[in-house]
Simulated scan of single mutants.
Amino acid sequence: MAYTLTSDLMTNNSMIDTQHKQLFDAINALLEACSKGQGRAEIGKTLDFLSKYVDNHFSDEEKLQRQYAYPEYEKHHKFHEEYKKIIRDLQQELGQNGANIALVAKVNTAIGGWLVNHIKREDLKMAKYIREHQK
Rank of each mutant, 00 (worst) to 15 (best):
Glu61Trp: 05
Leu5Arg: 07
Thr6Pro: 00
Pro71Asp: 11
Lys75Leu: 08
Asp55Arg: 12
Ala105Leu: 14
Tyr83Asp: 02
Ala99His: 04
Trp114Leu: 05
Gly112Gln: 00
Lys106Phe: 06
Met10Leu: 15
His118Val: 06
Val54Trp: 08
Tyr3Asn: 06
Ile101Thr: 14
Leu23Trp: 08
Gly44Met: 05
Leu94Ala: 02
Gly37Cys: 05
Glu32Lys: 11
Ala33Ser: 12
Asn56His: 15
Arg40Phe: 04
Ala29Cys: 10
Ala102Leu: 12
Asn117Met: 11
Lys36Phe: 11
Thr18Tyr: 09
Arg121Thr: 11
Gln22Pro: 04
Ser51Gln: 11
Ile119Cys: 07
Ile16Arg: 00
His57Met: 02
Lys85His: 10
Ser7Gly: 02
Ile87Gly: 01
Gln91Cys: 11
Asp25Ile: 03
Glu32Asp: 13
Ser51Asp: 13
Asp48Tyr: 13
Ile86Asn: 04
Asp89Asn: 14
Lys120Cys: 01
Ala69Gln: 14
Lys52Met: 10
Phe49Trp: 12
Ile101Asn: 09
Ile130Ser: 02
Leu103Phe: 07
Ala102Thr: 12
Arg66Gln: 15
Leu50Arg: 02
Val104Asp: 12
Phe58Met: 01
Ala99Arg: 03
Leu50Cys: 04
Ile87Gln: 00
Lys135Phe: 10
Gln38Arg: 13
Gln134Glu: 15
Glu62Ala: 08
Met15Ile: 15
Lys84Phe: 00
Thr18Leu: 10
Leu30His: 08
Thr4Ala: 13
Asp48Phe: 12
Ile101Val: 08
His133Gly: 05
His20Trp: 01
Lys85Arg: 15
Lys75Pro: 00
Ser35Pro: 01
Ala127Ser: 13
Ala102Trp: 04
Gln38Leu: 14
His77Asn: 06
Asp89Gly: 08
Gly112Leu: 07
Phe24Asn: 08
Ala41Cys: 04
Val107Gln: 12
His80Leu: 06
Lys78Glu: 11
His76Phe: 03
Lys52Glu: 14
Asp89His: 09
Tyr53Phe: 14
Lys84Leu: 10
Ala127Phe: 10
Lys21Asp: 11
Val107Ala: 10
Gln134Cys: 10
Glu74Ser: 15
His77Asp: 03
